[in-house]
Lab assay of single mutants.
Amino acid sequence: MPVRRGHVAPQNTFLDTIIRKFEGQSRKFIIANARVENCAVIYCNDGFCELCGYSRAEVMQRPCTCDFLHGPRTQRRAAAQIAQALLGAEERKVEIAFYRKDGSCFLCLVDVVPVKNEDGAVIMFILNFEVVMEKDMVGSPAHDTNHRGPPTSWLAPGRAKTFRLKLPALLALTARESSVRSGGAGGAGAPGAVVVDVDLTPAAPSSESLALDEVTAMDNHVAGLGPAEERRALVGPGSPPRSAPGQLPSPRAHSLNPDASGSSCSLARTRSRESCASVRRASSADDIEAMRAGVLPPPPRHASTGAMHPLRSGLLNSTSDSDLVRYRTISKIPQITLNFVDLKGDPFLASPTSDREIIAPKIKERTHNVTEKVTQVLSLGADVLPEYKLQAPRIHRWTILHYSPFKAVWDWLILLLVIYTAVFTPYSAAFLLKETEEGPPATECGYACQPLAVVDLIVDIMFIVDILINFRTTYVNANEEVVSHPGRIAVHYFKGWFLIDMVAAIPFDLLI
């Protein structure tokens, strides 16, 4: 008679799926529990143990900040960024110097990925580790590398530091407007667009060049630039800015003055950032001319202004700041037409079709709590990747769950009947059967004279019903998954307890 339990259901295979997918890609990662103190490590794979030199037993239950890997060259700011990422709910990448158990130093890129439950609360953290440099290539500990984003994938490793954006290309926007319009339909740009040429040739750093990471940081200074100062900065030398009595002219307006920039070969870094931020506020060169004239017309309804409409929906549905990093990277690809469009465009503009998908598509409701890094690593669709929660398995109709209350009560009843059979069957065979043979035949009273025979008949009927119930009862397979398919249940029961239950259900007393 089957006594099969499996009270692990309803099970959740999400954690096993993450481990299996990460292991298949030869990654070095740990999984931490966000619900406990210090976000203790609950799993670390073999790749991480080989990377740091510690065994799994030495890593388990330690804080996922990996303070046991810190050393003299470990930056405090990087460690603080990892700790801050564990307090938030967004994906974050941090470069930090770690030390192995043998004392060797290596520069590592740590990717902190939160995993949320159905309520939107962070319950786990996945920390992925990628070695960037070994100890002989690690720089000085005073050099802070965590304020910069990861290198873009479309640049060669040897040319990542030679990417320079020439400031004269930004200063000569109005001069290039006529050349853009003359391109017409034969050019790649839309009317009114501004073409910015980027020099990728390796050259020595000069005062006129600005690194790509500095251009990325310009967006942080746009908020500090007032509207009046932006307007004066875009007017140009024809209309000098008016300053109040006793007030000095704005240095932001002076930063885009061609006369002032041409007199000296070098520009201050602050002026460069502010000038680029001011130019980015204009949607095209037409807006710059309109600002000089004193009238700013409404933005025209053409394809170039609607190019950012799908980007707005993608940004609203993005799951991490990696989408913004990807957008900034692609927006700086050289030799393309940049349409400086305000994100607050007309909502009635139709979304044009684009061959290049900048932001990841909208994630469906079932995966809105899973970050983009987890979705990318697992390579699963929205119909396959579940949320991290207890999910009731989908069972067929008329199927009994093996952990249901009805099955528990039924098993206790069958257990009592088995005990009765084990006690009274030998007793009936030894004593009652002998008395029946010696006594007179009682054929007239039937079952009324033999109450134990009636009980034995009921017990046999219950055993037959138990066999039928076992054909529709779920079970737990070797992978700790609840199986509810009727065919698989029948095959599993035939290979197991079916023969024993059938022999126990045969009414031998009635056959004798």
Rank of each mutant, 00 (worst) to 15 (best):
R20V: 05
R301S: 15
F163V: 06
V374I: 13
P258L: 12
F14V: 12
D355G: 12
R4L: 14
Q84F: 08
L385M: 14
V377M: 09
A260I: 07
I288M: 10
P386C: 02
V41S: 01
I31G: 01
D199T: 01
S272C: 07
I359G: 14
L69G: 01
G139Q: 15
L378H: 01
P241F: 15
V180E: 05
A190D: 15
V59Y: 01
T371V: 15
R252I: 03
V113N: 08
C66S: 01
K28Q: 07
V110F: 01
T367I: 14
A169S: 12
P361N: 14
T201D: 07
D144K: 07
E23D: 09
P168F: 03
S263Y: 09
A223D: 09
D213V: 05
D346A: 07
H368S: 12
T13D: 11
D286Q: 14
V325E: 10
M133C: 15
V36G: 07
R164L: 07
E58A: 03
K373G: 04
F348A: 14
P157Q: 06
G226H: 13
V180A: 13
A34I: 03
P227L: 05
L200H: 11
R181F: 06
S275K: 05
V215G: 12
L15M: 08
A97R: 14
N12E: 10
R280W: 09
R271I: 15
L200D: 11
G120E: 15
S275M: 12
V325H: 08
T329L: 08
I18C: 06
D213F: 05
S178A: 14
I18P: 01
S178P: 12
S284K: 07
W154P: 08
F48S: 01
L380H: 01
F340H: 14
A282F: 08
T162I: 05
A169G: 15
K364Q: 09
P157I: 09
L170K: 11
P245K: 03
V377L: 14
G345L: 06
D219R: 10
L170P: 15
E95H: 06
A34P: 15
G139D: 09
H302D: 11
P168L: 03
A360S: 04
K101F: 01
L200I: 07
K21P: 04
A204M: 04
L212M: 05
D199I: 01
E289T: 08
H143K: 11
M137T: 15
G47V: 01
P245H: 04
K332A: 07
L324A: 14
R269L: 11
N317V: 07
M137G: 15
I42G: 01
T371A: 14
T319W: 03
C49H: 01
I358V: 14
V215M: 06
P150Y: 07
R292T: 04
D111Q: 06
D102T: 05
A360L: 12
P298A: 06
G53L: 05
P63K: 11
E134L: 06
L248V: 12
F22A: 13
G183M: 07
S182G: 13
T337I: 05
G306I: 12
S153G: 09
L256F: 14
V122C: 09
R35V: 13
H147C: 05
G226W: 05
S239C: 08
S255Q: 12
A360E: 06
S179C: 07
D119C: 06
M133S: 12
S278P: 14
G71T: 01
K28S: 09
V8G: 14
L87I: 08
E95N: 08
I333T: 14
S206P: 15
V113A: 06
T74V: 01
P298N: 01
I358N: 14
I359K: 11
E289C: 07
T162P: 15
T319F: 05
P2L: 06
A40M: 15
I19F: 03
G189T: 05
P237T: 07
T329F: 03
N33C: 05
T174C: 05
F163D: 09
I96E: 01
Y327V: 08
K135E: 05
V122T: 12
A156L: 14
A204F: 15
P258E: 11
S179W: 01
D46G: 05
K21S: 13
R366A: 09
A293L: 09
R4E: 13
P249L: 12
P251E: 10
E357V: 09
L155Q: 05
A121F: 13
D219Q: 04
R366L: 07
D111C: 05
P10V: 13
G262R: 11
P361I: 09
